[in-house]
Amino acid sequence: MVEILIMLAAGLAGAAFLLALVRFIRGPSRLDRVVAFDVLTVIAITFIVLAALVENRGIYLDAALVYALLSFLGVISIARYLEGRF
């Protein structure tokens, strides 16, 4: 029962990932791609949590935390770079 719900959640998140990927490829501006990238990374955190549940490994959550931290810093620095502050 729970396994089915987890798989369903993974399917929905996967569809969301594909839609964000469409925006990432289509652009049109570089900043649109950064916005899509931001959403992609947050969806990836959901995937890591789901993977942790399926494989029953809590250690994956540390990866999710570090991933959240790095993607945040990445998005901020790309945005500032596009603004021409560096």
Binding site: I6, A16, I43, T46
Partner: peptide, 15 residues
């Protein structure tokens, strides 16, 4: 989990 993933899907659609 399913509810959260559905909101992600709406976000992707909005994007």
């Amino acid at each position: 989990l399913v509810g959260g993933a559905s909101f992600l899907l709406f976000g992707g659609l909005g994007l």
